[in-house]
């Protein structure tokens, strides 16, 4: 019985140096195999003194169980190690970039057009359309801008013929929609417009959004309400808005709408020409002459109309300082949006 502790000791010594699965196998054979040390001890049990036999048998069995458990533990540990090693041998450099087609970008003008359209859609405005090559009648006459009227100087027009022009604003959509349908109407008309003008701050083509609403009893205060709501959604709840009198042949009263300069918070800077205000919209009550052209009774109906330049809003929104960038389609520009 005195040899048992040294048996355990020698097992511990040998098992602690096991590094691989085949070593553990050898260890198992050495101790627990058919001729293993422990097996031999058990085989030799009948030769032990009967008085000591039960205690000796228990002690050998304890050692056997201990060695079995220890070998199983070491083996599980080694298998886990081996599995990990095999995975690491398949390792990728996870810092390499993934493969994808870089997504394309929306044009900033389109971004802002969509934003404007969404805001007015949520207020119940529907989207109307008209041609970009337009009759002089719709672009001017029916909007109360007769031939030989100084108001025509306000817009440099591209002519196709005496009676056909590239629309100088989206306002003719008003006439086309009103000719087709009776009030009530709530319509916006986004689109391209053209002016015969090209310099640092003008491009011969740009985008406008026209909007109008006609019903019985639409008041100038409603125009103020709708546009203020729009501006507060488009910019911020705290953006100051002011309406000041102006002139458009197809609205009366007419207004120019300014917002507090978003660059200097109204303190005056280069962008707002030190005024603290930025002009972003033209608006007014639809002129009764316009109603007469489309056959609405100006005594029964009233309405407002407004128009805004999308390039200007986009430049303000993103801090773009050159309008010509919009139409160069330089990807270094487009990819920023």
């Amino acid at each position: 019985m005195e040899d048992l502790p040294s048996l355990k000791e020698s097992f511990l010594r040998e098992s602690s140096s096991v590094r691989a699965l085949h070593d553990i196998q050898a260890l198992r054979v050495k101790y627990l195999g058919k001729r293993g040390i422990v097996t031999e001890k058990l085989k030799a049990l009948p030769t032990v003194d009967p008085a000591q036999r039960p205690a000796y048998g228990r002690a050998v069995n304890e050692i056997k169980q201990y060695i079995e458990a220890e070998i199983a533990r070491i083996e599980a540990h080694l298998r886990e190690e081996e599995y990990r090693k095999s995975l690491l041998s398949e390792a990728l450099d996870v810092t390499l970039p993934g493969k994808y087609t870089p997504p394309g970008r929306e044009h900033p003008i389109q971004h802002v057009l969509s934003e404007i359209t969404d805001i007015f859609s949520s207020m119940g405005f529907e989207v109307g359309e008209g041609p970009e090559v337009e009759l002089d009648y719709y672009n001017f006459e029916a909007l109360n801008i007769p031939k030989n009227h100084p108001a025509r100087d306000m817009q440099d027009t591209f002519y196709i013929s005496d009676d056909v022009v590239l629309r100088t604003h989206t306002s003719p959509v008003q006439i086309r929609v009103m000719e087709m349908r009776p009030p009530p109407l709530k319509v916006i008309a986004p689109g391209k417009v053209y002016r015969c003008d090209a310099d640092v701050s003008h491009t011969p083509m740009f985008h406008q959004v026209e909007g109008f609403m006609v019903d019985t009893d639409i008041a100038f205060s409603d125009l103020k309400g709708v546009l203020e709501l729009f501006i507060h959604t488009m910019f911020s709840e705290r953006t100051p808005v002011r309406f000041r009198p102006s002139f458009f042949p197809f609205t009366e009263p007419s207004a120019e709408v300014d917002i507090g300069c978003i660059f200097c918070s109204g303190n005056g800077c280069r962008v707002c020409k030190q005024s603290g205000w930025l002009e972003i919209l033209g608006a007014g009550m639809i002129h009764p002459k316009v109603f007469e052209y489309v056959g609405y009774d100006p005594e029964t109906f009233s309405g407002f109309a407004f128009g805004m330049g999308v390039e200007r809003l986009t430049m303000l929104k993103y801090g773009i300082d050159d309008i010509r960038l919009f139409f160069e389609n330089d990807l270094r520009f487009l990819r920023q949006f």
């Binding site: 997504p103 394309g104 970008r105 044009h107 083509m205 389609n329 990807l331």
Partner: peptide, 14 residues
């Protein structure tokens, strides 16, 4: 088209 990697251009109508 944007998902396919194309960016939106706007050109003059001329």
């Amino acid at each position: 088209l944007r998902r396919a990697g194309f960016s939106a251009a706007i050109n003059y109508s001329f």
